[in-house]
Design a protein around this nucleic acid. Structure first.
Lengths: 144, 144
DNA sequence: AACTAATTGCAAATAATTCTCAATCGCATT
DNA sequence: AATGCGATTGAGAATTATTTGCAATTAGTT
């Protein structure tokens, strides 16, 4: 069993919830790639292999994955909610191109440290960052 | 006429659009306070004084205000879209309390500089930032 | 005042998400 | 392996936020 499955199972057990087949499928699909995904994209991805997982179950499972710290909401600049699995990955920021939709991920301990300091000044306990920027990427700027 | 009205009128003229009564009411309500607002909140606020502005018109006017750089979308951590007027205000980040909903605004040239540098490395041209964090504020942490 | 294109409010349409509920499943205990 | 019971599921209805089509109205120009 993979690490993320163990973590999820454990999380569920503590809450007296069960690691069911649909939940397993959803979890493993999420961890099969490192793409960001909307609920619809995840649904389509799952449906390729499994005809028996409903949208409702995906909507019900995502909050559990978020609560267990396996995934986080991200790309909040976009219209629909998007998520990504974050377990095992460093915190990163997103640069989202308005023209082509490309997403550039950048890491920065420095930026993170500053944000943490700002929070500390206000005595604020940060649970989740939400950092992103919309703009135009290198390639698309060339085309103008 | 106030500065923001002039800017908006000018913006509209260039696009061959008209500064109508409903648009004026929406603009001035937005600039009457420095609160963040959802469409619904704005609608309620407007309705207190003007019974003749519809939701549809608000939905149609907001993109114009965004395009003319008078307001920006903000607080993307929340379920509904929120906006704030930004004309005449420095860029700032938000700390949003998950318990009580309180919003703390913090400014930081330092954080801004770092994000700009990161963008530069990737040759990315940032149009709009979207920086914030969810967590627990000072008061709510006391209560636990 | 007349003209013309932009704008409006309304109500219907769409889109995303949540809810309801009867049928089923997972797991602990026989 | 059968039983019992609460958790879970899928399907579709319901809800919420937003967008759209359209006939009537309005702003700004001639």
């Amino acid at each position: 069993m993979q690490e993320h499955e163990k973590i999820f199972e454990n999380f569920l057990k503590i809450k007296d919830l069960k690691l069911t087949k649909p939940r397993k499928i959803i979890l493993n699909t999420v961890f099969a790639t490192h793409e960001h995904f909307s609920v619809d994209e995840l649904y389509d991805q799952i449906r390729k292999k499994h005809k028996d997982v409903s949208r409702a179950t995906i909507y019900r499972t995502i909050p559990l994955l978020v609560e267990s710290d396996l995934i986080k909401q991200s790309l909040r600049c976009l219209a629909k909610d998007h998520y990504e699995h974050t377990y095992g990955h460093d915190r990163h920021f997103h640069l989202i191109c308005e023209k082509c939709g490309k997403i550039i991920e950048v890491e920065s301990k420095k930026a993170e440290n500053i944000l943490n300091k700002l929070a500390k000044i206000h005595n604020f306990d940060i649970k989740e960052y939400n950092v992103g920027a919309k703009g135009i990427c290198k390639n698309c700027r060339k085309k103008i």
